[in-house]
Design a protein around this nucleic acid. Structure first.
Length: 878
DNA sequence: GTGATCACG
DNA sequence: ACGTACGTGATCACC
């Protein structure tokens, strides 16, 4: 068997990884995504090929021969972004630490070195693999030289392999003719000009026919498309230059000793240290050395004896603060983990004489002795923990969310990494995908570790998080809004909302009848049966078979989105039917059938209100989502009739009127805007009057509608394109609307500009109440991402402040209902709306409370108005 | 698991 | 020239 050598194009793979992997930093803020991606690709190759030799080639930053040639021609390559540049020396050090051979040589690019070494090695009888993201290298392919191009596809890395015959198959030309192709078509990524006007198709045709550019030029008069002929004849010098640029030098003057490339043990101690600093936790597993210092796990104790549990509970009462974690799965208490100090961490298991009641009673006793507790995710534990004063609690998950609301979740391992500065094994590593209950039965020891880590991290990180919240100006937000809100949300979840199951079912049945009718008609009009719900099949039928004019395309095919179909609706009966079908199947599957699955034994739906999901500070609702129940279309709105108050109760619903625009009025301090709100005027109408230079009385409903869209657009971080899409007008018209808007409300423009500028400086935006939203996109060199960042910088303070205000209102309303011992309960929040299930004897009182507490939630430069209504179901409250 | 679509504010 | 409104979650198809 031949010996194998792997050659890696260092910069090319780093580049791939940098742009392919979302940004990743270690806790000191050093960017690591390119290194991480590079290593993953390298490890994958090593395990696949098990080569005896490995070399990584790098470009030297000094100008090279081919660069020089190019510079004269067109200028220099655009510089590497700083986030990538800083990673280059580190990967080199890391490779050195792994005793992996690196080559670089002034005057040559990495691909020249790779070309030379690969040819030499194959001649000497080695089997060679060249790893690069650059298709230029395909010219090197031979039977024993395989070019491997990694592609990051949906998170997983797939590698395309090319031997000589694969190149021929894929490109219809030999590896060496790849150079000829490049000479004609050019390569913007590699700064090769090519012949303007000749692309991949024409280039392939020419080279397949004539073999090379010289021969093609000689037979130029025969070349078929006139355009290509003229392009080639006029730009033959460019083609020749491009050919030189594209040709990899396979005779570099380098001393390459294969012995230096011999692979030994790459898992050295130095490499281990570097991996640790880079915080590549899951890569650390590759080392024989222990992944984590077990000193921490050694202090963990699993408690199953009552007297030991008793002892711990008694000690807990003497502490100032403990870390605690109630482990509940499907209503069942499996145990509790308690951290008394850094070295006293216990998992008290609910079994034998230690009953769930015992644990609950003892823990609540501790809480009553008014010591502080710290925990991860307090809301989920409140069914068991009886909190007498929320001020004694510290939820580190909530704290971590406020410090960085962009994370999807806040597991103990991430908290340890971020706030304690060390790496812990993740839950999944220890338990896999097991639930607590399953882990309790199948992996009790690992479960014990997980829960002990949790209470340990909760205890140890609380102080750090407190300091960081104070430093970030978020301490009041944490103490006065987010922590108390936990209780409010828990109350809402516990109460739930009653649903008429039979009515819901009947509603679904009615939808089914119409859906079947629609199906029949659609099949008839299209001439075949297909899955209307499949955008792929639907697109093929509409735009393929039936030949409808198609507007947009998606990555995977035709777009069949509603805004595309709506443009065709008037002309094609089938499109109108499809739109109705879509609407009805959505209502049936998501709402009629979907909601029915969540009705519990008490006849009510208990949705989850999540406090740590959104980037802006809003809460979200899941399982089911009760914040997107239909209202805009009448047919959908009817669903709200099945949401009912219990007997002797009614619904009282209150929503803030235009809260985001009022927040904008406050932020900007714009006189006209503030005056309009103080005088309770119709803001959209006023805007229309100003923007369209029309007397107030003469504003048409269309003008008002357009002005409303502009107002919304401002809140979203206006762009002329977005507005034009929304209103189906030209971009130019949209720009004019925006310009006039800013003339009308000049302070709004100032505010928005300032919001972007400030966010650019600080790296984040802030709400009135101090909530932070980081906006890393503002620093992006990518236009699209940066523009997104700018829109976010305009929107986040507005949406976030509105979210803060309604959170304050929720806490105040809920607290008053409870402190005044009322039967009425707050049951839903829908971003600017609160729904109360009010006892018939308390309706007036409830209205008074809503009025008072919602108005009083914030003191802005404009009044906060609310609209209130009552009803015997959610449909009636409008 | 991801993308397309569509429900809400 | 780039290709876009801000923030969510559920369902379905399809790999």
């Amino acid at each position: 068997m031949k010996e194998k050598i792997v050659l890696i194009d260092g910069h090319s793979i780093l580049n791939r990884a940098f742009y392919g992997i979302p940004d990743l930093t270690n806790s000191s803020g050093f960017h690591t995504n390119a290194i991480y991606g590079f290593l993953n690709i390298m490890f994958k190759i090593l395990s696949e090929e098990a080569p005896q030799y490995l070399t990584v080639a790098f470009d030297v930053s000094a100008p090279t021969f081919r660069h020089e040639l190019f510079k004269e021609y067109k200028g220099t390559r655009k510089p590497m972004p700083q986030e990538l540049r800083e990673q280059v020396p580190v990967i080199k050090d890391l490779l050195k630490a792994m005793r992996i051979n690196i080559i670089e040589k002034a005057g040559y690019e990495a691909d020249d070195l790779l070309g030379t070494i690969s040819k030499q090695s194959s001649k000497q009888g080695f089997e060679v693999s060249v790893i690069s993201g650059d298709r230029d290298l395909l010219q090197l392919a031979e039977e024993d030289i395989k070019i491997r191009i990694p592609k990051t596809k949906r998170g997983t890395t797939e590698i395309e392999d090319y031997n000589a015959k694969d190149v021929l198959e894929a490109y219809q030309v030999t590896p060496l003719q790849i150079i000829e192709l490049k000479a004609l078509m050019g390569d913007t990524a590699d700064n090769i000009p090519g012949v303007p006007g000749i692309g991949e198709k024409t280039a392939t045709k020419i080279i397949v026919e004539y073999g090379n550019i010289e021969n093609a030029f000689a037979h130029a008069d025969e070349i078929k498309p006139n355009k290509a002929r003229e392009a080639l004849m006029e730009n033959y010098d460019k083609a020749r230059l491009s050919k030189t640029l594209a040709t990899i030098d396979i005779n570099c003057d380098i001393q390459y000793s294969i012995e230096n490339a011999k692979l030994g043990n790459i898992y050295t101690d130095q490499a281990y240290q570097m991996f640790k600093e880079l915080e590549f936790k899951n890569l650390l597993n590759r080392f024989d050395a222990p992944v984590n210092d077990n000193t921490l796990e050694e202090v963990f104790k699993t408690i199953t004896m009552l007297d030991e549990a008793e002892n711990i509970m008694n000690q807990a009462k003497k502490c100032d603060r403990i870390g605690i974690q109630m482990i509940v799965d499907k209503e069942r208490l499996i145990g509790t983990s308690i951290a008394l100090s850094e070295t006293q961490v216990y998992f008290i298991v609910a079994e034998g004489f230690i009953t769930t009641e015992y644990i609950a009673d003892r823990v609540n006793e501790i809480l009553n002795s008014s010591i502080s507790i710290s925990t991860i995710g307090l809301k989920e534990q409140l069914r068991i923990l009886q909190i007498s004063d929320i001020n004694q609690c510290f939820d580190v998950e909530i704290g971590a969310y406020l410090l960085n609301p962009m994370n999807p979740i806040y597991p103990y391992s991430d908290l340890a990494k971020e706030y304690l500065g060390f790496i812990l094994p993740e839950r999944e590593e220890l338990l896999g995908k097991l639930s607590y209950l399953d882990a309790y039965e199948q992996k009790p020891q690992e479960l014990s570790k997980v829960v002990c880590y949790m209470s340990y991290v909760a205890l140890m990180s609380a102080g750090v998080i407190e300091d960081r919240l104070k430093a970030a100006g978020e301490w009041d937000l944490f103490k006065k809004i987010e922590m108390p809100l936990i209780v409010t949300l828990h109350d809402m979840e516990t109460t739930g909302i009653a649903v008429e199951k039979d009515e819901l079912k009947e509603y679904g049945n009615q939808l089914s009848v119409r859906i079947i009718e629609l199906e029949k008609q659609i099949y008839q009009l299209s001439g075949e049966e297909f899955n209307i719900n499949s955008p792929k099949q639907l697109g093929e039928i509409l735009f393929g078979k039936l030949g409808l004019p198609n507007g947009k395309k998606t990555k995977t095919g035709y777009s069949t989105a509603a805004d595309v179909l709506e443009k065709l609706e008037a002309d094609y009966e089938i499109v109108a039917l499809i739109l109705e079908y879509r609407q009805l199947t959505k209502l049936k599957s998501t709402y009629a059938d979907g909601l029915a699955n969540y009705i519990e034994a008490d006849g009510r739906i208990h949705s989850n209100f999540n406090q740590t999901i959104t980037a802006t500070g809003r809460i979200s609702s899941t399982e089911p989502n009760l914040q997107n129940i239909p209202i805009r279309m009448e047919l959908g709105r009817l669903i709200r009739k099945v949401f009912i108050p219990k007997e002797d109760y009614v619904f009282v619903d209150a929503d803030y009127s235009q809260i985001e625009l009022r927040v904008l009025a406050h932020f900007s301090g714009d006189k006209k805007l503030i005056q309009a709100y103080r005088e309770e005027q119709d803001i959209h109408k006023i805007t229309a009057s100003e923007v369209f230079h029309t007397p107030l009385e003469e504003v048409t409903s269309l003008q008002r509608r357009n002005a409303k869209a502009v107002n919304f657009g401002i809140v979203y971080g206006i762009s002329s394109f977005g507005l034009s899409q929304d209103l189906s007008i030209s971009r130019k018209e949209a720009s004019e609307y925006i310009e006039k808007y800013f003339e009308t409300y000049p302070r709004v423009k100032e505010f928005l500009d300032e919001a972007v500028m400030k966010a650019k400086q600080e790296g984040y935006s802030t709400t009135i109440f101090g909530r932070i939203r980081p906006i890393p996109e503002l620093k992006s060199s990518n236009f699209m991402q940066r523009s997104f960042g700018e829109r976010v910088a305009m929107n986040a303070p507005i949406q976030g402040t509105a979210a803060d205000i309604i959170k304050i209102a929720m806490i105040r309303v809920n607290d008053r209902l409870k402190s005044e011992s009322m039967k009425s309960k707050l049951i839903l929040q829908v971003h600017d709306e609160l729904l109360i299930e009010a006892h018939k004897d308390e309706i007036d009182k409830v209205k008074e409370i809503l009025n008072c507490e919602m108005h009083g939630a914030a003191n802005l430069l404009v009044p906060l108005e609310i609209d209130m209504s009552t009803g015997n179901n959610w449909y009636e409250t409008k």
